[in-house]
């Protein structure tokens, strides 16, 4: 078993994960500010965040940008891929750099992927490219309205 698999979160790690998923300040010494609230030293908080990232308990730490607000294109698309083509279509999709996420899901529509493009207009182009290459229809489901979320997953 690797070190990554065996590392166990302690109570301080859990407190950090729980507090920092709610937000992090914009200030001259934000780690000091957050550390004080948690009863830690500034350096201990920095070291712990670094370790949590390295051990992959955190996937990111920092600002989360909204791709659509940045002027790029972003959409969710789905396909119904026959079993015998699934692996080749999956490999093809994963090779496209605009495919950011791709999930196999248990449904007749079994392939669900997120397309992120630099220009809004490129979404349609990529979808046509995928349809031409795979000979399968792609159902484009761009968001029409985004609802504010308050996700909180306690560690």
């Amino acid at each position: 078993m690797s070190e990554t698999d065996s590392y166990q979160l302690d109570d301080i790690d859990k407190k950090i994960i729980n507090a920092l998923q709610k937000g992090f300040p914009i200030s001259a010494r934000p780690y000091l500010e957050a550390a004080t609230d948690l009863g830690l030293s500034e350096q201990e908080l920095i070291d712990r965040i670094q370790r949590l990232l390295k051990q992959k308990f955190l996937t990111r730490f920092g600002p989360m940008y909204d791709a659509a607000e940045l002027g790029g294109g972003l959409t969710l698309a789905a396909m119904s891929v026959p079993e015998n083509q699934f692996e080749s279509v999956s490999a093809y999709l994963n090779s496209i750099k605009q495919v950011a996420h791709n999930y196999e899901r248990e449904h007749r529509l079994n392939m669900w992927f997120v397309l992120a493009t630099e220009q809004q207009g490129d979404i349609e182009k990529v979808i046509h490219q995928i349809e031409n290459q795979t000979r399968l229809p792609v159902y484009n489901m761009p968001k029409e309205h985004s609802f504010f979320v308050n996700l909180y997953l306690p560690a």
């Binding site: 998923q21 937000g23 992959k56 600002p63 940045l70």
Partner: peptide, 23 residues
């Protein structure tokens, strides 16, 4: 500038993103 991007929704939030699976 980061505060302005946060206010406009260009930055959704500044935070830690937990790895759902590892938790």
């Amino acid at each position: 500038r980061m505060q302005q991007m946060l206010d406009k929704g260009i930055i959704r939030r500044i935070a830690a993103v937990p790895n759902h699976y590892k938790l």
